[in-house]
Amino acid sequence: MPAESATLAFEAIGTGWQVDSRAPIAADTVRRMNAVIEDFDRTWSRFRPDSLVTEVASRSGEWTFPDEAPALVELYSAMHAATAGAMSPLVGASLSHLGYGAGYSLVPGAGTLASPDWDRMDWDGTRLRTRQPLELDIGAAGKGLLVDMIVDLLEQDGVEQIVVDASGDLRHSGGEPVRVALEHPYDTTKAIGIATLADGALCASASNRRAWGSGLHHVLDARTGEPVDEVVATWVTAETAMVADAVATALFFTPADQLAGYVDFEHVRMLTDGRAELSSGFPGELFR
């Protein structure tokens, strides 16, 4: 990061964001960025009573989603197949059941609740038809998608040397590569390795942080509604943050080689016993 770069920090979709660029971002661009974020939240947030997703959860029907939907549903469809159903945009009901829903009750219901099957909806591009109320949750790829949308907007407006950091989802466009510490999932003063990011995305997912009780966290297996064990943290690089974000979640359910046929990525994966794996093309190293 050049010392003279400009930084814009803000909060959006429930997390902290930082946008670095070579020069300060024009006020008009910032306004349009805020509009993109607001539209995104208004569409996809499970936590807003006025969102489109909340409406989908209230009744069966037919809806039109915005332009980002086709790429998202295509990716989810691939991840759903690659993980044998473990990863699904219908995991919202399972999350709510465990207390991670609107209102953040964080009080788990009895047992776990499996998510509805994919065939309960007909999602084609921007059109969604349902035969029952469905709790959509795009949390596995949504933050990455928004990172990409913001980077696209900034690039269109001529912003140079961009680094967008959305608390775990990073994307770099132009300028010097950035060195990124891979935060130890049990100890934020330590790193288990390091990555170098240049013109691409790096997304991290850890099951221990957004946790609200013993064994309860936000990475769920849609087939059973149960939080997953064994993998404690993942880091994925890909061309887009949406793909990196989705794969970072998918790696909690599925070995990397089973995902490789669907999307291009490199990864680090750490298991609960402290072992970690590194793909051969990962732009970085592990401390062993």
Partner: peptide
């Protein structure tokens, strides 16, 4: 010991 400009782990409390 780490000359990094970013940390990738997770969110919320880490900030």
């Amino acid at each position: 010991s780490l000359d990094v400009s970013k940390v990738a782990g997770s969110s919320l409390t880490s900030g």
